[in-house]
Amino acid sequence: METRRLRFLVELARLGSMRAVADVLGTSTSTVSQQVAALAREVGAPLVEPDGRNVRLTAAGRRLAGHADGILAAVEAARLDLDPGAVPVGTVRVAGFETAIRRSVLPVAGVLAVDHPGVRLTVLELEPDEALGLLAVDGCDLVLAYDFDLAPASFGSSLRVVPVWSRRWGLGVPASSVVGAGAGAVEVFRVFAGDEWIVNSRNGIDERVVRTVASMAGFRPRVTHRADSLELMQDLIAAGLGVSLLPVDVRVRPGVRVVPLAGPEVVMRACAVTRAGREVWAPLAVVLGLLAGCGEPDDERAVVGDGYVGGVDADDLS
Rank of each mutant, 00 (worst) to 15 (best):
G295D: 14
R211P: 07
P221K: 02
A272M: 00
A285I: 04
L232T: 11
V248Y: 01
V223T: 08
R269H: 10
R253N: 07
V259E: 14
A302T: 01
H225F: 12
P254W: 05
L236M: 15
V286I: 13
P254H: 08
E231W: 13
L241F: 09
T224Y: 05
D299G: 09
G289D: 03
V258T: 05
E279I: 00
L284F: 02
W281T: 07
A272L: 04
V210S: 12
F219G: 03
A239L: 06
P247N: 08
L288P: 06
R226M: 04
Y308C: 10
G295W: 09
V259P: 10
A302Q: 05
F219W: 10
A292E: 15
R257L: 10
R301Y: 09
P297C: 07
M268H: 11
R257E: 08
V213E: 11
L245Y: 06
M216R: 14
S244V: 09
V287A: 09
D299W: 00
A292W: 08
A302S: 15
V258F: 00
A227I: 11
A227C: 10
E296F: 08
A292Y: 04
R275G: 08
R226T: 11
L230D: 14
A272S: 06
V266T: 11
L241A: 12
M216Y: 14
P297R: 02
A276Q: 13
G242Q: 10
Y308H: 15
V267G: 00
D228A: 15
R211Q: 03
S215W: 02
E300P: 01
E300Y: 10
G218L: 02
R257P: 09
G218R: 08
V213S: 12
V287D: 04
V258L: 02
Y308S: 12
D298A: 14
E300T: 07
R257S: 07
A262R: 15
A270D: 09
V248S: 13
G295H: 09
R211I: 05
P264F: 03
P221E: 02
P247T: 10
P297N: 09
A217I: 03
E265G: 13
P247S: 01
V309C: 13
R257H: 13
T224K: 09
L261T: 02
V213N: 04
H225M: 07
L288V: 03
